[in-house]
């Protein structure tokens, strides 16, 4: 990638860069060595703390069931969030002001309340009213929290996806005699969903990461297993590190998938919703701005509207 910040280095600059690189490599090694020494002192690097992870017992009885619960919560939340997002996303694009307002309030509300607060609320609500079998309460709490928040994000993505389409698409749909609802459903939404695919996949990473909040309402997901493993083999720190590695591998794969999808959609010459922006991209996408789309999903909490753009522009 051409950087805007630097010229191509000459021989002097290259020599300087090598020196800086060597010094910083030394610093990194020293820092790592110091950290490892600290953990070694407390016996965290002993073979006995790590060998349990090579036994089937730990995986079959702890890690894999934990991972399974994590994936179940994530999968349910994805399905429900998709439905929630579709309903309220279409609501925000509705032609009836009342529906639009209600949807806007609902979406904005659930986007600004922390997921954990919604989880605590849902969990306590279900527990006190006996809505579910008592062992299902933690799962229901996690799924409710994740659905409400991520559903609101999906609704917002959908709205901006439709907003990013050329106006001619709507006009063409209306001109051939489709109703506004039909235009939305059969012309705009399919294109919007293609455009939002990369952003949707990065939202999956958010969902998967946030299932770990279930730890705080005793949902037996992957992170929770560190306590059982830790007390069983007295190695809580190695257990946390292994669990972190599992999360990182899965999420990294999903992040890579998202960038692949984005590249592919882009090569086909279609617009994508930049991961960094709900609402139209803030600037025209110069080639150099491509790395902008590496910006992370947290940026999705975007709440700006581009100037001069109102909901009334879209049917």
């Amino acid at each position: 990638m051409t950087s805007v910040l630097f010229d191509h280095p000459g021989p002097k600059a290259r020599a300087r860069h090598r020196i800086i690189a060597a010094v910083s490599a030394l610093l990194v090694v020293l820092a790592l060595w110091w950290a490892l020494a600290q953990f070694k002192e407390k016996g965290n690097l002993d073979a006995a703390k790590w060998t349990p992870f090579l036994t089937a017992d730990l995986w079959v009885n702890y890690l894999l069931p934990g991972l399974q619960n994590t994936l179940i919560a994530a999968a349910l939340s994805i399905v429900f969030a998709g439905a929630f997002g579709l309903v309220f996303g279409m609501g925000r694009l509705s032609h009836v002001p009342a529906i639009r307002w209600v949807s806007t309030v609902v979406v904005e509300f659930f986007r600004s309340v922390p997921v954990l607060v919604m989880m605590f609320f849902a969990f306590n609500l279900y527990a006190h009213n006996g809505v579910f079998r008592s062992d299902l309460n933690p799962l229901a709490g996690v799924v409710t929290g994740l659905t409400l928040y991520n559903g609101a994000v999906v609704a917002e993505l959908l709205r901006s996806g439709v907003g990013s389409l050329p106006k001619g698409q709507t006009e063409a749909g209306l001109a051939i005699g489709l109703s506004r609802g039909q235009t939305l459903r059969s012309v705009l939404l399919p294109q919007a969903i293609t455009a939002m695919l990369p952003a949707l996949v990065s939202q999956l990473v958010v969902i998967l990461k946030d299932t770990a909040l279930g730890y705080l309402i005793t949902y037996q997901e992957l992170l929770n297993k560190f306590q059982q493993i830790g007390s069983y083999k007295s190695n809580p720190v190695p257990a946390l590190i292994v669990i972190a590695a599992i999360f990182i591998v899965i999420n990294y794969a999903l992040t890579s998938l998202a960038s692949y999808l984005e590249r592919r959609t882009r090569q086909r010459g279609r617009a994508t919703i930049p991961k960094g922006a709900i609402g139209p991209a803030p600037v025209d996408t110069q080639p150099i701005a491509r790395a902008l789309h590496d910006a992370d999903e947290e940026v999705l909490h975007e709440r700006y509207r581009a100037p001069g753009r109102t909901d009334d522009e879209h049917p």
């Binding site: 953990f39 990461k209 770990a212 992170l223 946390l240 972190a244 999360f247």
Partner: peptide, 16 residues
């Protein structure tokens, strides 16, 4: 960092 759950990082600060 961005592929690790925040809950895990906070728990690690405590346990680790």
């Amino acid at each position: 960092v961005r592929n690790t759950p925040l809950t895990l990082i906070i728990v690690f600060c405590n346990i680790g």
